[in-house]
Amino acid sequence: HMTFVALYDYVASGETDLSFKKGERLQIVNNTEGDWWLAHSLTTGRTGYIPSNYVAPSD
């Protein structure tokens, strides 16, 4: 899985979304859904959809 880092805080707007904090590391499970990607937080262990423009590839 690709690892990304959150650029901003995001508060989930629905049950399927994943809240995260700036700097949180996320594994992308599925990024074929356009602007919303299914991600797994390496910080909280939770999985949900995130806005793709809130994250950047982590080196």
Results as ranks from 00 to 15, higher is better:
H1C: 14
H1W: 11
H1M: 12
H1V: 11
H1A: 13
H1I: 12
M2Q: 15
M2F: 10
M2R: 14
M2V: 13
M2N: 12
M2D: 11
M2I: 12
T3S: 08
T3N: 07
T3H: 14
T3F: 14
T3G: 07
T3W: 14
F4Y: 15
F4S: 04
F4D: 00
V5M: 07
V5E: 07
V5Y: 08
V5N: 03
V5W: 05
V5T: 10
A6Q: 00
A6G: 06
A6P: 01
A6S: 06
A6W: 00
A6V: 10
L7C: 08
L7I: 11
L7A: 04
L7Y: 03
Y8L: 09
Y8M: 11
Y8S: 07
Y8P: 00
D9T: 06
D9E: 07
D9R: 01
Y10M: 03
Y10E: 00
Y10S: 02
Y10G: 01
Y10N: 02
Y10P: 00
Y10H: 05
V11H: 11
V11F: 09
V11Y: 09
V11P: 05
A12D: 03
A12C: 05
A12S: 09
A12N: 05
A12M: 04
A12I: 03
S13H: 13
S13F: 10
S13P: 07
S13V: 15
G14Y: 09
G14H: 13
G14P: 03
G14K: 14
G14V: 10
E15R: 09
E15F: 08
E15T: 13
E15G: 08
T16K: 13
T16I: 10
D17I: 07
D17E: 15
L18P: 05
L18V: 06
L18M: 15
L18W: 03
L18Q: 03
L18G: 02
S19G: 08
S19W: 03
S19L: 06
S19A: 07
F20A: 02
F20L: 08
F20S: 00
K21C: 11
K21I: 10
K21L: 10
K22V: 08
K22P: 02
K22F: 04
K22H: 05
K22C: 06
K22E: 06
G23N: 05
G23E: 03
E24N: 02
E24A: 02
E24T: 02
E24M: 01
R25M: 15
R25Y: 15
R25T: 12
R25H: 12
R25S: 08
R25D: 05
R25C: 12
R25K: 13
R25P: 07
R25I: 15
L26W: 02
L26R: 00
L26N: 00
L26H: 00
L26P: 00
Q27F: 15
Q27P: 00
Q27R: 15
Q27K: 14
Q27S: 09
I28Y: 02
I28C: 07
I28F: 03
I28P: 10
V29T: 07
V29K: 08
N30A: 11
N30T: 08
N30F: 09
N30V: 10
N31M: 15
N31V: 12
N31Q: 14
N31L: 12
N31G: 14
N31F: 15
N31R: 14
T32N: 09
T32E: 12
T32I: 11
T32G: 10
E33H: 14
E33R: 13
E33A: 13
E33I: 13
E33C: 14
E33T: 13
E33P: 09
G34S: 14
G34L: 11
G34I: 11
G34V: 12
D35T: 11
D35W: 10
D35G: 10
D35L: 11
D35H: 13
W36H: 05
W36P: 06
W36F: 08
W36E: 03
W37G: 00
W37L: 08
W37N: 01
L38V: 07
L38E: 05
L38I: 07
L38W: 11
L38S: 02
A39P: 00
A39M: 10
A39H: 00
A39Q: 00
A39T: 02
H40K: 15
H40W: 08
H40Y: 14
S41D: 04
S41M: 02
S41L: 03
S41P: 00
S41F: 01
L42F: 08
L42E: 10
L42N: 05
L42Q: 07
L42C: 12
L42A: 06
L42I: 09
L42Y: 08
T43C: 13
T43F: 07
T43Q: 10
T44K: 02
T44R: 03
T44A: 04
T44W: 01
T44H: 03
G45V: 01
G45C: 09
G45W: 04
R46C: 09
R46V: 06
R46Q: 12
R46N: 11
R46F: 08
T47N: 08
T47D: 07
G48T: 01
G48E: 01
Y49C: 10
Y49F: 11
Y49S: 04
Y49M: 11
Y49T: 05
Y49D: 02
I50A: 02
I50R: 00
I50V: 11
I50D: 01
I50C: 02
P51D: 04
P51Q: 05
P51F: 04
P51V: 01
P51W: 04
P51Y: 04
P51M: 04
P51H: 05
P51G: 01
S52C: 10
S52R: 11
S52D: 02
S52T: 06
N53S: 15
N53D: 11
N53T: 12
N53L: 10
N53Q: 11
N53G: 10
N53E: 10
Y54H: 09
Y54M: 12
Y54F: 13
Y54S: 12
Y54Q: 05
V55L: 08
V55P: 02
V55R: 01
V55A: 05
V55M: 06
V55F: 06
V55Q: 02
A56R: 10
A56Q: 12
A56C: 09
A56D: 06
A56Y: 11
A56E: 13
P57K: 09
P57I: 10
P57E: 09
P57R: 08
P57D: 06
S58D: 14
S58E: 15
S58G: 10
D59E: 14
D59P: 13
D59F: 13
D59R: 09
D59H: 15
